[in-house]
Design a protein around this nucleic acid. Sequence first.
DNA 1: ATAATTAACTATAACGTTATAGCTATCCAA
DNA 2: TTGGATAGCTATAACGTTATAGTTAATTAT
Lengths: 344, 344
Amino acid sequence: MIRRITLKEIANELNVSISTVSKSLKDSHEIGIETREKIKAFAKAHNYRPNNIALSLKNRKTKTIGVIIPEIVHHFFSIVINSIEKFSTESGYNVIIAVSNESFEKEVLNMETLANGHIDGIIMSIAKETLKKQDFHHIKETIDLGIPVVLFDRVISEIKCDKVIVNDKQAAKEATQVLIDDNRENILLLTSEDYVSVGNLRTEGYLEALKDNDIEPDSNLIIKVKDKKGSQLEMSYLEDELEKVIKSKKVDAILGVNEIYAGSALKVLKKNNISVPKEISIISFTDGVISRYSSPSLSTISQHGEIMGERSAELLINKLTGKTSSNEFKTEIINCSLIKRESS
Amino acid sequence: MIRRITLKEIANELNVSISTVSKSLKDSHEIGIETREKIKAFAKAHNYRPNNIALSLKNRKTKTIGVIIPEIVHHFFSIVINSIEKFSTESGYNVIIAVSNESFEKEVLNMETLANGHIDGIIMSIAKETLKKQDFHHIKETIDLGIPVVLFDRVISEIKCDKVIVNDKQAAKEATQVLIDDNRENILLLTSEDYVSVGNLRTEGYLEALKDNDIEPDSNLIIKVKDKKGSQLEMSYLEDELEKVIKSKKVDAILGVNEIYAGSALKVLKKNNISVPKEISIISFTDGVISRYSSPSLSTISQHGEIMGERSAELLINKLTGKTSSNEFKTEIINCSLIKRESS
DNA sequence: ATAATTAACTATAACGTTATAGCTATCCAA
DNA sequence: TTGGATAGCTATAACGTTATAGTTAATTAT
């Protein structure tokens, strides 16, 4: 085991001062060319690497970005992280991951740890429980400490910071319109509970499209999936409710706010021998792996996770490097796009 | 914006020395109870938090674990990360993520960055390109620096460190036997190229099962999927090859080394109106979201990513905390289990 | 010849901690 | 009444850097 060599050790070995070594390695003209070269050669031979922690302490920046997400085993979030990681690395930043697991408490804890620690800024998407509680003190405190925060996807207007969102409402409206244009007027909506900001926006878009086409919304055709911890229960709730509805009501299309919901719906329809898209056509949000490999494959609304991640990282890094002022905030809106597959 | 208060500032405010403040906050009996309480109250009121970077510098440990994985948008790896994150957080460690994207160069770069920086140890799964090149100098150098490394899933015997693997060969053998017991003897294997350690082991298991049952292996029934960067090409290669084989040869079962391969196979079979599992039954590795939501759902071999992540984190943290000696290495083997669904 | 300039280095402080050793009253024992 | 113990505090060094402000000795200008 070879411990990493320090400036001090090099200085001692070569009988010069630490300053001389430091300056030589920075190729400072204050140091004579001969000494400089000798020191550089020695450092190279001993594979000298500056100690980044010492640098972090000195410079008061860590070149690390913290990311807090509700879940990691999730197509959309993993795409976003991947993209954040990619962009950040290119700009010389590391990425540290924290998972809130949709829990308020864990999110607060994560923020605390990150904010005391090794990060310069935070990119996050808010946990469902936090949205429900409407308690955002931890985020505000972090911002007050001068740590820039960028919110993506699940955001709240109450917090002043950079944000990256998707035109959820518009996309849901357009998708609904596509279904209506296909002469389907009994459109069932599979959505999440009201406090989830994006689910809510998508519901609004759905309702607006109906209204524009003078279709009376039917509350029986809106299933708000209760989320229990442990998705098994969540899905069986969805399946039971859906089965009830399709047995009692005419349904000729389904709009799902995510692909898990749509995938589960597909199972229910198959079990009941309803053909997709002939009898019921489906469009869902989240362009993930389920949509591509299910059969029929699902038409989905892509939220362009890569772009979201990239923009979030860009906004944050611009703040960190002082490219943008620390008290002006932008909200970037990414346009969704509908990817047509077999289910519609 | 409120900057975080430091010991020095508290000391100045209360007209005591920095040492007194430090000791008071640690509740040292060297300091009189009155002073101590006063200081603690002041610190609390000003929301004092120790600067972790200063601590890292002092203690020469960062309480952070680096994880290098080939991909993040990948069910298995995201499960493992999730589990590493969970276990590490519980033990007071942060997790920093780096993605090699299956590239050797990026993996080396990632290692360099992590090893110079803010981490105490590394958990990694080796990139395909690295396996192909057989160049592991970066891993060895990191270990030589006294940074403990734990390898999981894709490992190599050449490196001396803790490892966590799955009994790939045995699992593939057993799955093959299940198919044979179902009177299917023309089993097609969808595997990766030889240099991928796990693919190779699974192929071996498949061949061994055939041998045990006196079935002559047929090289036409083994498709080694060429991986191109950009999985689109990779999949179309698989689909073309598979289509050729099923048209020219009798095939009554398929064993896939991962669920993407199996999912793609399912598409090909559907396109050719071959019923699953009646005409061809399928078993695949990787118990992910495709397997559950495809139809028919896929029987899969679960590699228990959560357990892998947990064990990896545990092994690493034991090294970091000195619970296990730094020159004795363990290889933990996780048993796969076959999850039977509709495809077999 | 002497002051001013410059080249080539070094010392010091600082980033925020903590551990070790050191200091100064006060108190008790002999 | 003096020396040792103790309580309660402080000074210092160290972790590994870098920036600022010195310090020499040699060189140049006048």
